[in-house]
């Protein structure tokens, strides 16, 4: 096999992204017949920088959360990494290969699971579709049977794979989709909202499975999800993207310390009827405990005041929920005046 790209060594990242850009040209017009006719003569387009010069490395075996609001550029990035989209600029390698070349060897080593799309045959049991994947990925029968049985056991879908896919619930379908996507034992997993629309129990099961797959095979995982529980459970590192640019790349704990503008103080008083509004915003109160939201820089001073002025039975200081932190990060992206103009209109 001819090799015209470097083979990754043990110290090389599994994924390397350098100044990656993707620009779409999108037609647009105002509503109404007049504008419809006008657009026949004069076509108006908008250039959208979906991904605007992002760079990061992901080490082999790392599980990274890729976060951002809708339209941030997450899925576009994942598609470029999986070879479905050509980058407009910049460079990227996955397992040493250039994804846009879509070489068979590269495609045999990755998978992209999209929570809102299914690839299994609708009308037949998933077990039959698995056979098709065996043939496509040229998996020897013995290895195929071992992997299939292992994945089926891990996701507890023994009964489900014998039913036609159309008869499965959304969560059941997602589980068998994941089995189908991993039969070739990919070394890099791109998971785009794998738990979307699933109930809490099913979400937990899929999280546990991804963690186990990563542990067992040392696979690299890049995960997008709107459910922060997915990210907290699986990812030590997160990359936050907004308007096609990276706002944060680092540890999950670092995200809170850098972006959380406040902390929460949980106070248990001897007399729980006392009003603590003077110390901070009361965001929760029950029979025993009052939860206050206070500015992060004021936390020490307010805690000291509470302890000295009130009869405190117990006190805890916590970072805000990660959902709130992410909201703050996204809001900081919206407000960041340093961001260049992303969209240019051309006709």
């Amino acid at each position: 096999m001819p090799e015209d790209h470097p083979v990754p060594g043990p110290a090389d990242p599994a994924i390397r992204v350098v100044e990656l850009r993707k620009t779409f040209v999108v037609p647009e017009r105002e509503a109404g017949l007049k504008h419809a006719i006008r657009s026949l003569v004069r076509r108006r387009t908008r250039q959208v920088n979906a991904v605007d010069g992002i760079s990061f490395d992901i080490a082999p075996g790392e599980v990274v959360g890729f976060l951002g609001p809708n339209g941030a550029g997450k899925t576009t990035t994942l598609k470029m990494l999986a070879g479905l989209l050509y980058p407009t600029g910049g460079g990227l390698t996955v397992l040493g290969a250039t994804p846009s070349r879509r070489e068979k060897d590269f495609l045999s080593r990755i998978t992209l699971v999209m929570g809102n799309r299914n690839q299994l045959e609708w009308d037949i049991p998933a077990a039959d579709s698995f056979e098709l994947n065996r043939a496509i990925y040229r998996i020897p029968p013995q290895a195929f049977a071992e992997t299939r049985d292992e994945l089926v056991e891990l996701l507890e879908v023994g009964d489900l794979v014998r039913k036609p896919v159309r008869n499965l619930s959304l969560g059941e379908r997602m589980k068998v989709e994941i089995v189908g996507s991993l039969l070739h034992r990919p070394q890099v997993l791109f998971l785009d909202e794998p738990t979307i629309g699933l109930d809490v129990t099913m979400q937990k099961r899929i999280r546990a499975f991804v963690a186990e797959y990563n542990r067992r095979y040392g696979a690299t995982v890049l995960l997008t999800s709107h459910y922060m529980a997915d990210v907290v459970a699986l990812c030590k590192r997160v990359i936050v993207i907004h308007h096609g640019r990276i706002l944060f790349d680092g540890g999950l704990s670092g995200l809170s310390s850098r972006f959380a503008a406040y902390k929460t103080i949980g106070v248990t008083l001897d007399d729980p009827t006392i009003d603590l509004g003077a110390y901070g915003e009361v965001i929760h109160r029950d029979d025993q405990k009052i939860t206050l939201r206070v500015p992060k820089l004021e936390t020490s001073r307010i805690t000291a005041r509470l302890l000295s002025e009130q009869a405190v039975a117990d006190l805890t200081i916590e970072d805000p929920p990660i959902e709130d932190v992410i909201e703050t990060v996204f809001a900081s992206g919206e407000d960041d005046e340093r961001l260049p103009e992303r969209e240019k209109v051309s006709e």
Binding site: M1, V7, A14, P60, G61, G96, R138, A143, V188, Y217
Partner: peptide, 26 residues
């Protein structure tokens, strides 16, 4: 023909012609 990523064993594959016949039959 390509070394596996670090920590992952390379996996054998069925030969190209046989796999294509297998694909069509499947």
């Amino acid at each position: 023909g390509r070394p596996a990523a670090p920590g992952l064993p390379d996996r054998p594959r069925v030969g190209r012609v046989r796999s294509m016949v297998d694909l069509y039959l499947t």
